[in-house]
């Protein structure tokens, strides 16, 4: 059991390294060194040479990679090419918004969706189940900006609540203030992960519910509540944690579209700007942060899947 988890951790670390190579190499092949763009036409040969030296571009690619990786581990993400500010400062200015939205979505969206999904699995084929299934089948395939548009139309135009963009500062707001501040982004992301979570948690519970030991519990006269709570959930918990982790990993992607849609500054808007200005040092730093978050969540999903096997939990 432990050795399996350690092996998964090892694979996780290898994944992060592979990610760093992909991001590093990917950004290194930017056509026409990015700094040329920044220095514009006035750049002299001497200027460019000095710049190249400062960025370490005169060294071999392997050396450059190792230096970059070493700096990254120490928390030194370099200096933005576009704004000349240290990247760590750019991130410090903006990370709250992204983290607030992701965490609040997880806190609000996950428990509600799980409850809805498990409830649907308890009454399969009921009207409630069919409506929920239809809604989640529809929402799961819809793009984030469609859901966002629907919510804006409903709240801003039909009900006259809130604003189509997120404006103002979060300073000094408590959790309820933050929820109100980010209501529409949180709602959008919650809907998107809810459709996945409802479907997958429902399927996970139903899968367990069709096993012979549940039939046996029915034939022993075990009440429905206990069948769900003791016999089914105990075996479905692993798959469900797996589903939750996968969806939180998805939030990393979903948050990008939502930030752009509602036009508030966060890490995601920063990376989009970085791509547009070809600020490769900023892309490297942010790319690593996003990908590492993603890899860690995927790792949690995998470990949860391992933990769900009773044979591994209770070895002979």
């Amino acid at each position: 059991m432990l050795s399996l988890i350690i092996r998964r951790l090892g694979i996780g670390i290898i994944s992060v390294l592979a990610v760093s190579v992909i991001i590093f190499v990917g950004t290194m092949i930017l056509p026409g060194d990015a700094e040329q763009i920044r220095l514009c036409q006035e750049a002299t040969e001497a200027n460019i040479a000095a710049m190249r030296e400062r960025l370490g571009l005169d060294k071999s690619i392997v050396e450059q990679y190792l230096i970059w990786l070493g700096n990254f581990v120490r928390g030194d993400l370099g200096v933005s090419l576009a704004s000349d500010a240290p990247i760590i400062e750019l991130i410090a200015d903006r990370y709250h918004n992204t983290v607030y939205v992701a965490v609040l979505t997880a806190l609000i969206g996950v428990p509600i969706s799980l409850a809805l999904g498990i409830l649907a699995a308890m009454f399969p084929g009921s009207l409630y189940d069919r409506i929920l299934t239809f809604v989640s089948v529809s929402l799961v395939a819809a793009p984030e900006f469609f859901t966002a548009t629907l919510l804006v139309l409903l709240f801003v135009f039909a009900l006259g609540i809130g604003n189509a963009v997120v404006v103002g500062s979060t300073e000094g707001k408590d959790i309820f203030g933050l929820i109100a501040h980010f209501a529409l982004p949180i709602a959008t992301l919650s809907f998107v992960i809810a459709s996945q979570l409802i479907r997958m948690s429902r399927a996970a519970v139903l899968n367990v519910m069709s096993s012979p030991y549940i039939e046996m519990a029915i034939l022993k006269g075990v009440p429905r509540r206990r069948i769900i709570m003791r016999h089914a959930l105990l075996n479905a918990i692993g798959p469900i944690v797996n589903v939750v982790a996968l969806n939180l990993a998805y939030l990393v992607t979903g948050v990008i579209v939502v930030e752009v849609y509602f036009g508030y500054p966060g890490l995601a808007t920063l990376i989009v700007q970085a791509v547009q200005t070809r600020d490769f040092i900023l892309i490297q730093g942010l790319g690593m942060i996003f990908c590492m978050t993603y890899v860690v969540l995927m790792l949690i999903a995998d470990v949860a899947a391992l933990m769900s096997n009773p044979r591994l939990r209770h070895p002979k």
Binding site: T27, T253, C291
Partner: peptide
């Protein structure tokens, strides 16, 4: 597996940036 452990949109961003 290494490839799959990346968020797709991030891969897309890096390629488009490159």
């Amino acid at each position: 597996d290494a490839f799959l452990s990346l968020p797709t949109i991030m891969l897309g961003l890096v390629v488009v940036a490159a």
